[in-house]
Write a protein that binds this DNA or RNA. Structure first.
Lengths: 347, 347
DNA sequence: CTGTTAGCGCGTTCAA
DNA sequence: TTGAACGCGCTAACAG
């Protein structure tokens, strides 16, 4: 219900000065009274008056203006590549769980996997004085921009790693992820395989490529020649590359590794359009264990990605940087195979 | 690669005063030279000097400090309930497409569908001086908080409507959505139906409930007694309610309307666990046409939600409010049925 | 065309 | 225990 008080609420936020003149005291005193850590310095009776006046006027401290003095905004920026890839959701939730208990608000922005946008966004966020930055959207060419940002504000790179960078990184061992899938294919008896690669300037995809190829070689799987990579690791690109594999290759692979789940979904659709069955005609594995992949038809074999833990760890490192801890170790977590119905022995 | 210049980049951002003293001019002149709309006022030669100096020092205007004077931050806040529900992604993208061409950055925050969090978040965002607010997470009890916010900063409610509020709303006709599904069930020949309801303080769910019931009555479908509603419209709650329907009801419905897709997915799993088949034993329809629902097993019959358009329209209204347009009309779009394999005639 | 003054809303001196 | 003065980084208004 809308009360009269609500209707009369002012169109501008009350300021410290408003409260001060209301109670006939100086802004400084009001400032002290309203700051828990300094409230003790002020007479408890006058404090009471100040607090009630502040409430009546709906006073809220202005974080922006305050930050000019304190340098803190209680806000951190999280920069993601693509919120449509539900892989990131657990990461965001992990971050939020860790920082919200400290009263810090994470704000999220999206790059659409475009480095230009990333640069603009970092710039904007610094300019808005966020206390820290967590970058989930790093590509190799972004290393400079990110490490410059790190000189201004505590910065952590997560989810997508970056090598040779002087910024803490929280990642999953993606080389191992690629290896696991290749071993799985080999164990099932496949001999001819292919990869649907994501953009190789994203470490996750280059590492998966390497890990998969290493094991493929060791286990003597034949890898069909590479047909380029996805410009962006999305369903559309997965569809395009899978169609290409099915129409252009001299030989048809019996198992395909799509380097993330959206691309695997695109591959599913392409296979269907070609009148082939999964896994009878061709096996497909993805990676990241995105929500819903278990319920696809057939359930998608994938590599579980501990997203919540990655987010939580990234946030923890960030908080330590904010506490001026000098030496913060990077973190690397392990992935696990989740075998489901989309992979089976070759026909 | 990391160049020498990068390594020497300062740990604090350069300020207007830094640039000014570098070129031996006053901060005002530098300010003018660097603002496109006032750059004409300054000698083109000295402007040149200023610009190069600014670049060399890596100067970036401080949006926060500027906003103290101008009142603009070129940032709008978008508040979503749950980013794990991929239904919101197209909405976010619609918003971003519209505002980014104006040089405005949307920052996203998540409430987890908790009104307390919503209140804190709005407070924080106002306090951070966003130029406008788009609320995608409104529940009925949030109306006061939202309309107070609207007095301070241009505010638009979208995706989840709110009645009797003096704030523009962009929504989809959810009553029609519910009606469409009931018609579909009736047309298929179903006689006994049930609804898995979302929280009724969210307008989308109360409207779907009403629309569905109206048509059910008109078409003489028997609705199994309501078994409560989801606390939160998620997969887990859909699973819980579907299990309840299957175990507790005297009668078993032949068709169930889950009021959004995540709840429909939860229902899918519950049905499977009870050893029943979809759609042979029981039909299930969802709503929102969330990405991936087409690929479930079986493909989910759902109601398409024009999310991108909702986001785009919401952003357009927001921009008009920012341009001080007085009378901004609310917008209501129409949903469409997307029949797929999860619904069929009753056994 | 350029510099000076003032102040946005706060927190932090320092004095009283 | 309280207040006055200052400055955070910037722009607006007025001088010159």
């Amino acid at each position: 219900m809308t009360t009269r008080a609500d209707l009369m609420r002012p169109r501008k936020r009350a300021t410290l000065a408003d409260v001060a003149s209301e109670v006939g005291l100086s802004p400084s005193t009001v400032s002290r009274a309203l700051d828990p850590s300094r409230a003790a310095m002020v007479n408890s009776l006058t404090r009471e008056r100040i607090v009630t006046a502040a409430e009546r006027l709906g006073y809220r401290p202005d974080v922006q203006a305050r930050s000019l003095m304190t340098g803190r905004t209680q806000t951190i920026a999280v920069i993601a590549a693509d919120l449509g890839n539900t892989w990131v959701t657990p990461i965001l939730h992990g971050i939020a769980s860790r920082v919200s208990v400290e009263g810090i608000v994470p704000v999220i922005a999206e790059t659409n996997d475009d480095s230009t946008v990333l640069t603009h966004l970092i710039d904007h966020m610094l300019s808005r004085r966020v206390d820290a930055l967590i970058v989930l959207a790093a590509r190799r060419q972004d290393a400079d921009v990110i490490s410059s940002a790190a000189r201004i504000v505590p910065t952590v790179v997560a989810a997508r790693g970056l090598v040779d960078i002087d910024v803490p990184v929280v990642a999953v061992d993606d080389r191992l992820g690629g290896q696991i899938v290749a071993e799985h294919f080999a164990d099932l008896g496949h001999r001819v395989v292919a990869q649907i690669k994501g953009p190789l300037d994203v470490s996750n995809f280059s590492l998966r490529t390497e890990g998969f190829s290493e094991v493929a070689e060791r286990r003597r799987l034949r890898q069909l020649p590479v047909l380029g990579e996805a410009a962006v690791p999305t369903e559309e690109e997965g569809h395009r590359l899978m169609s290409q594999i099915l129409t252009e290759a001299d030989d048809r692979p019996t198992a395909v590794f799509a380097q993330n789940d959206p691309m695997a979904v695109g591959a599913f659709m392409a296979v269907r359009e070609h009148g082939l069955r999964i896994p009878e005609d061709i096996s497909i594995a993805g990676t990241n264990d995105m929500p819903l992949t278990a319920l696809l038809d057939p359930g998608l074999t994938t590599v579980h990605y501990p997203g919540w833990e990655v987010g939580y760890a990234a946030a923890s490192l960030t908080l330590r940087l904010l506490d001026r801890v000098e030496h913060v170790e990077s973190v690397c977590l392990d992935p696990d195979l989740v075998p489901r119905a989309s992979t089976a022995p070759p026909p």
